[in-house]
């Protein structure tokens, strides 16, 4: 299940990383605005929650960590 979760995280990461840079910037997040039902503020909140190191970009590891927590949260609901 862990491998499956991480595989899914990678697929979602690619959806955000439109240019295939290998990381996600705030600008990438803002581009998702038209595609996801989230406001710019919410996308910014997501970005900042996932950007643990606050270095301005999301690495696949940070993204997977956030997704892993989400999946963990989901189990309890």
């Amino acid at each position: 299940p862990l491998a499956e979760t991480m595989g899914k995280a990678k697929e979602l990461f690619v959806l955000c990383d439109k240019e295939g840079k290998g990381f996600i910037t705030k600008r990438d997040m803002q581009r998702l605005q038209g595609e996801l039902p989230l406001s710019p503020e919410q996308l910014e909140t997501v970005f900042e929650s996932l950007d643990r190191e606050s270095n301005g970009f999301l690495t696949p590891v940070e993204f997977k960590t956030g997704f892993g927590e989400f999946v963990g949260l989901d189990d309890t609901t």
Binding site: L12, L15, L36, L38, Q42, V46, S49, F67, D74
Partner: peptide, 29 residues
């Protein structure tokens, strides 16, 4: 604790984000 409240709100937004991404992925093959 305001920090805990903010954390809980963020979790909701994160869940919304990941759910939307997941449905986007499954919705568009």
């Amino acid at each position: 604790d305001p920090n805990m409240k903010a954390g809980a709100a963020n979790e909701g937004v994160l869940a919304n984000f990941f759910n939307s991404l997941l449905s986007k992925k499954t919705g568009s093959p």
